[in-house]
Nucleic acid binder design. Structure first.
Length: 244
DNA sequence: GAGCGGT
DNA sequence: ACCGCTCAACGCCAT
DNA sequence: ATGGCG
């Protein structure tokens, strides 16, 4: 049986379903908990989502079940939810992405068991122009956090020297992110090229003879994977061989 | 999770 | 009424 | 090559 209940989120009447459905079987957290959590952090989260094309990663059967991604806003999306139509490439059809600009939209997404939210690196109205580049630094096997941090900070220094203002962030996992804000006036392609050059320089200039094993991924463009995204594997095992 | 189309 | 399908698009790995 | 997995 499917239980529903109405609730008002920042002035908007929403219908939630199966609030007691367990999405985290180990911890017992439910879909209701997910919604409550997202609402509770909305004040800090929303600024990062505002006006950015959103892809939902939904887990209707919980984190142990199968997930799926959803770019196109579902047909049943209420009309008060803002969307933005963007085509992946010239000539391909537009996808109407959700813009999660308010608490009610966030709660509505959470009700769809959208545990993970992916946003583009650009926002309306300059949706073709990223406002940051992102380097994902993953520790290779046996790479201690300290080494990873050292590399991140040196990388940041290099970028600072050419006038950028990079930020080093922790991630949910074991890696670090280097976020590099840029003026929204360069294409995804241009930013990608810059990022590749920067990553290659780091690979060249950083101590190779230490047992350093760090991977730099340019997960660049837009959200998650996609035609315009590009991954750079800078350093693998001994003496950085493979490139992609 | 929700809607759709086929049985 | 119920079932099966869709909902991104990569690289990588196994057939 | 093709298909499944993450």
């Amino acid at each position: 049986m499917r239980t529903t209940q109405k609730a008002t989120v920042s002035g908007r009447e929403l219908t939630f379903s199966n609030l007691d459905k367990i999405l985290w079987p180990h911890d017992g957290y439910t879909k209701g908990d997910l919604i409550a959590y997202y609402v509770s952090v909305a004040k800090w989260l929303l600024p990062h989502l505002k006006d950015r094309p959103l892809t939902l990663q939904r887990y209707p059967d919980g984190i142990a079940g199968q997930s799926f991604f959803e770019k196109q806003a579902p047909r049943f999306t209420p009309d008060w939810i803002k969307t933005i139509g963007v085509s992946a490439d010239q000539g391909s059809r537009k996808i109407a992405y959700i813009l999660c600009n308010d608490e009610a939209t966030l709660a509505w997404c959470a009700n769809l068991a959208a545990i993970v939210l992916h946003v583009w690196y650009s926002h309306r109205p300059t949706v073709e122009y990223p406002d940051y580049a992102l380097f994902d630094l993953d520790p290779g096997e046996g790479c201690p956090v300290k080494t990873l941090a050292k590399v991140a900070l040196e990388f940041a220094d290099m970028l600072s020297e050419i006038g950028l203002k990079p930020l080093v962030k922790t991630t949910g996992g074991s890696g670090l992110h280097l976020v590099v804000p840029v003026a929204p006036k360069y294409s995804y392609d241009a930013i990608k090229q810059f990022a590749e050059i920067a990553a290659r320089r780091v690979a060249r200039e950083l101590p190779k003879l230490t047992t350093l094993k760090v991977r730099f991924y340019w997960t660049g463009c837009r959200s998650g994977a996609g035609k315009r995204s590009f991954r750079l594997l800078v350093s693998g095992r001994a003496r950085g061989r493979r490139f992609r």
